[in-house]
Design a protein around this nucleic acid. Structure first.
Lengths: 121, 121
DNA sequence: GATCGTTATATGTATATAAACATAACGTAA
DNA sequence: TTACGTTATGTTTATATACATATAACGATC
């Protein structure tokens, strides 16, 4: 498998001075979407349930609307899924990320040439 | 009118898994370039000299070559300036940042529209 | 040699962040 | 009712980060 070459970009969206959404929260949202629960997503990311829950809570508060809808109790104990807004948030982030990396590719290559390629391994 | 309304982008360059360069370090480099010393740059950014020095040291180590050249002692007690590499690093970062914001503008506006309008339900 | 403001370094103290652990509430199904 | 796995919410501990303070070395200038 091919790891992303360094240097690479990471993009954050500053929704307000105290609230940003970056690659970590987006990966968590994606994991929730594919796992069906916060706790399973946390396990998949090697993250404690509490941390995952706190991040979800933070995301929902940063945006003015819930990105994750949660059900407590019920079949299988409950679960969580992305709201339509949450889905579009992830999609938008990924699109922005792709656009940014595309736009920056030349400069990053030049930077890599300056610094020297480090092939770890 | 102020330049960037929220949400806005912030871009980091991951030079290696443990070393990133983002808007803070770039602003520090720019302050050093315009102030002529680490300590003056720190004062200008309301940052302790130690913190500024540590950041410069980190930058110089993250990259494989110095971005800041320092002179201890001498006229005015010494000073610091950007190396040619440091100058190009700043220029490249700012160019990447502009490209990224340009590429993401539409999506950010859509996101702003989503978040700005609070729809309960 | 004394002065000056800088670089360079060390140490201790707050503060913020993350991890670890514990426990209750929930709602479906057996 | 009981069991189950989840959401929800604490409390405590540990770690990392930032801050404050102190001090020495440096080298041109006076």
């Amino acid at each position: 498998m091919r790891k992303s070459a360094l240097p690479s970009l990471s993009v954050r969206i500053d929704l307000d001075p105290e609230g940003r959404i970056g690659p970590g929260k987006i990966r968590l949202l994606e994991a929730i979407a594919s796992c069906g629960s916060i706790s399973a997503a946390g396990r998949a990311m090697n993250m404690s349930y509490k941390r995952a829950w706190d991040l979800v809570d933070e995301i929902n508060h940063i945006c003015n609307r819930p990105a994750v809808e949660r059900q407590t109790g019920g079949k299988n104990g409950g679960g969580a899924m992305l709201t339509p807004f949450g889905q579009s948030l992830v999609a938008r982030y990924r699109k922005i990320e792709r656009s940014a990396e595309n736009a920056a590719r030349k400069e990053l290559q030049a930077l890599r040439a300056d610094i020297g390629v480090r092939t770890k391994g």
